[in-house]
Every structure is written in C-alpha cells, then in structure tokens.
Nucleic acid binder design. Sequence first.
DNA 1: TACCCATTAAAGGTCGTACCTATTGTATCT
DNA 2: AGATACAATAGGTACGACCTTTAATGGGTA
Lengths: 241, 241
Amino acid sequence: MSSQPTQSKTIRAQLLSAMKDGEFASCQRLPRESVLAESLGISRTQLRDILASLEREGFITRRHGVGTIINRHVLNVHTRMDIEVEFLDMIRQSGHEPAVASVRVSDGTADEKIAAQLQIPKGTPIIRVSRLCTADGKPAIYCEDVIEKSLAQGGYTINDLKLPIFHFLQQFCGVNPYLDLTDLRPVVADAALAEIFQVPMGSPLLNMDEVDFDIDGKPVFCSNEYFADGIFRHTVMRKKL
Amino acid sequence: MSSQPTQSKTIRAQLLSAMKDGEFASCQRLPRESVLAESLGISRTQLRDILASLEREGFITRRHGVGTIINRHVLNVHTRMDIEVEFLDMIRQSGHEPAVASVRVSDGTADEKIAAQLQIPKGTPIIRVSRLCTADGKPAIYCEDVIEKSLAQGGYTINDLKLPIFHFLQQFCGVNPYLDLTDLRPVVADAALAEIFQVPMGSPLLNMDEVDFDIDGKPVFCSNEYFADGIFRHTVMRKKL
DNA sequence: TACCCATTAAAGGTCGTACCTATTGTATCT
DNA sequence: AGATACAATAGGTACGACCTTTAATGGGTA
C-alpha cells in the first residue's frame, strides 16, 4: 500500500545530509554530474532525477554550462514549513527542549467540517486526540488530531499517543500519510487558548488546519494546530511555477 | 545572468496546465512514460526529469509498477503558499477583483534588520515602496518593499510601481528574483495597521517577512507583508524529506 | 464454490553511451 | 588594449536495453 524506501530516496537523503554537513563546502557546488554519480555509485540518469527534486526544493540550482550550485542560504533554514516535520523535531530544531505536556483522547462524531476534510459522511464516529507540546517547559504547540474511528485498531495506550502521531497512525491504523495540505491563519487567543498557552487573551497565534492524505490520495487524518508566537521561525521557500 | 526558459520548463508548464485543464481526467493518471514522452515530443529521459519536479510539488505521484497518478486534490488548491505568486494574481485566484489602492515611495537607509536581510552594511541607502492592494475594494494586502538604492536605475514613474514588483525589479534594477525565503508570523493589528486595513485594533493579521534571492544566491530585495484574515486561503503542501 | 499460488503483462526505475548546447575563460589576432 | 575565435567544462537531451515492482489473471486444489 505504501511506497517502499527506494534506492533513489536513500541516496537522495544521503546526498542531502552530505551537503548539510558541509561536504562540498570548499566551493559550494557539487562535482560534475558524471563524477558525483560515480562516487555515489549510481548512474548519471538516476542522479539527475534526484537533482531535479532537490532543485525544486531550492537546495540546489542547476545551471547549464556552469554547474550545480549549492544554495546554502536555503539549506540552513531551521524550520521549513513546506516540509513535513514532527512537532518534537521542530521544537528541537528551533533550539528548545521538547516535551509532551498532556494528551487527551475522546470519542465523537464528525461534524460538517471534519466530514468534508476526511470525505466521510457527517456523524461518522471519530477519535479526537488533543496534545500540548512544550518547548523548554513553555506551551508551544496545541493540536487536536482527528481520525475515523473505524481505522483505529485498538490495543494502544496513552503512551502510544505521546509518541509522534505518525507512529500511532502507522502502528494502529495502518495508514501512512504521504503528503498533507495545510491552511494557515492568524488567530488571536480566546479564553480557552489563553489558558492553554498561558498567554493573555488577544495574543496572536498561528493556526494550521491540516489534512493528511495517503499515497492513494485518500484523506486519512486531520489536525487543527495552534503555534505559540515567538518560539518558531516558520520559513517557507518559494519559487515560481 | 538569469536562467533562460529552457525547453524543459516550457514543456513542464504545458503538461501542468494540461493536467489542470482536465486533460487526463478520465482515469486521473498520466499515460505510460514512453507514450507521454512521444506525445510531448521529448525523450523519456527528459520527461522523467520533469516528472521528478512535479512529483516533489505534489502534483503527481509516481509508483513503481503502477503508474503516474494525478493528485487532483493538490492540483485544485487555490493559493499555494509554497509557490511564488503575484499579489494581484493571488487575489484574483481567490475569486476577488484586485486593485492597487495606493503606492508610496520613499528613500531611507538600511536599519539593522534590513542590512542583515540584504547582506549590506547598515546605513546603506535604500528605497522603500509601500503598497496597499485591495480585493473587491477591501484592504487585503499591505506591503513594504525594500531594495538597495544603488540597484535602481531611475527613469521609472509611480505607474511602474503599480505594476507587479517583479516588473520593476527586472526593468529598472536588472535583477531577477529566483526564489525567496519567507518567515510567517501571526500578528494583531496595532493602531497603524487597523487604520490601513479598516479593522478593529487587535484583529489578527498574517505577517510575511520575505527575502528574495537571485539565481546566484544574492539577496536582492526584501518585503514585509501583511495579509487580511478571511480573504485568502493560504495553503501549503508538505511532504517529508 | 472458494481460496491459494504461479504466471504474466504493464509501467516505472536504472544503466550506459553518445551527442547537443550554454558558459566561461583563454589565447590569438588585429 | 580590445575584440574575436577557440577550446574546455558541465549541464541538457536522446536512445535503447534491461531490472524490479505491482496488479491482474487463470488454473489447480481443498
């Protein structure tokens, strides 16, 4: 059902971390494609496929007749908002000590909005998981995850929910999120959010409304998230189409 | 200096619009690579390079042994925040009538923040351009663009600044933004912003702090932008690395 | 009839080589 | 000294062959 970690993906990751580790720091550009391909043990054809995706992510720029340049300013971005990252990793990347302060699970049924997001009939049984993550002990992220109840296979404990939600989805629901679409909005803290984040009412918060799809394009999970202001630097890399 | 619109880019755009126009709607997947390559008049090699980038953007999913699936739910997103779009187009895409309500130009010098963003010494002369864009007559986007004064070649009028800023940069500054890095923050309207957006103080606004780089990785332009809440649907597509 | 397993066709993934073309720097000629 | 021609570099494109993963098919057995 899910996509295997193909050779391409592995080498891609390998090349990316090599760049991040300053492997080619001397001239900030990659070796000639033919050379690099050989040193990675793959063909130039495959390498070019990898480079095409890295270029689209902004990490490199390929220029005909010149070479492949490493975009260090992109590589150095802490938190790329256009790349899916676990909350705890995100907090860690921002230089803070992450923790899951609380988890709450409850059953319910899909309201109009959830039904639309998950493409299920209104009233379908769902599970709600509320979590609060802290950075150095301060409230940083509050999220309410929702998944169709019939997908959950039971047998899990609260501790399973304190781990990244992807583990839970994979282990107990048999689903592998492949990509997500997330809507962003600025909001101000109401009484409830002010209490959760321990900030004055009216404080700004970043709201993300996320729907995760599996590789078949089926929505499998959605999440409403609030991010405290001032802890993260949410950066997005943009290029024209 | 800038990258030419290569054949690859052209065909890529052509293929993407064909998908958007529902060209392959019947089965929501692309023809076999060999067939598609032929019908596009290119080699399979080149096609695969194109597909790699389209896959990274979420528009398609390539599955070994299966085929190339079109992700209509991604294709249908109105405003992809991880893709650079002109403000006026953005407003139009959101179903509103765009207009530039006001433009103001002033000279100044780089403060600490601008200096860091543009990687120039503090105090370097700059030009500031403030613009207010409206959607159906209502304030939607307010931005303050900044560019190093020595880059501007003069000879422009206010009307040139009412056009998309990229025209100005290209025509009068000789720079071609290649990608940008944008930081996102939720903010609440202070007195000045409340006046500009004609909303109560304390209203939520989305703030984007953008730095544009040319193809050589040199910062050439930065912009501090505010988006009214409720007009746009800022969506970002995310995949794991 | 129902289920399991082997076969096979379809389609993306990888490889290798040859050649085209844009850039850049250098050497030469004026 | 400047302009022009040339050569080296490196990415872009093209074929054609073969590998590997999926999914469908069909036959055989319980």
